[in-house]
Design a protein around this nucleic acid. Structure first.
Length: 110
DNA sequence: CGTGTGACACGTA
DNA sequence: TTACGTGCCACAC
């Protein structure tokens, strides 16, 4: 683990912990994680903060299971994300650009 | 201490 | 369906 993958703050640790619990073939949106942390652990932070955590420390977790609410994977990682989706059997609405996960079926409530 | 930026979300056109 | 504006909040300058 590099220093860039060692979150020192509580919020980042919570976010990465939740991401680690998402089963293969399922996904959560940035907003879902923010809402889950707020409801279950009573910690504040919006979707953009979750996005910031993933951009900074996402390298150490299953980052492809954390996507936007409309089902699109993070910019610049669509190809790598698609490979994971095909390998895990994640429900897709579009298997070629613009790649989009079928949120209605793949969404994990946490 | 104001301004810009971002791996976001949502309503409206 | 895509495109744009607005709200959001932490962080860098």
């Amino acid at each position: 683990m590099s220093a860039a993958e060692r979150p020192v703050d509580e919020y980042s640790s919570r976010v990465l912990d939740v991401v680690d619990e998402i089963p293969a073939g399922r996904v959560m949106s940035y907003g879902d994680i923010a809402e889950y942390l707020s409801a279950e652990y009573h910690v504040t932070g919006g979707p953009r903060q979750v996005g910031r955590v993933m951009a900074t420390f996402g390298g150490g977790v299953a980052w492809w299971r954390v996507i936007r609410a409309d089902g699109t994977p993070p910019p610049g990682h669509e190809s790598a994300a698609l490979a994971h989706y095909l390998a895990e059997g994640t429900p897709l609405r579009s298997a070629r650009p613009p790649v989009r996960v079928d949120m209605r079926r793949a969404r994990w409530p946490g």
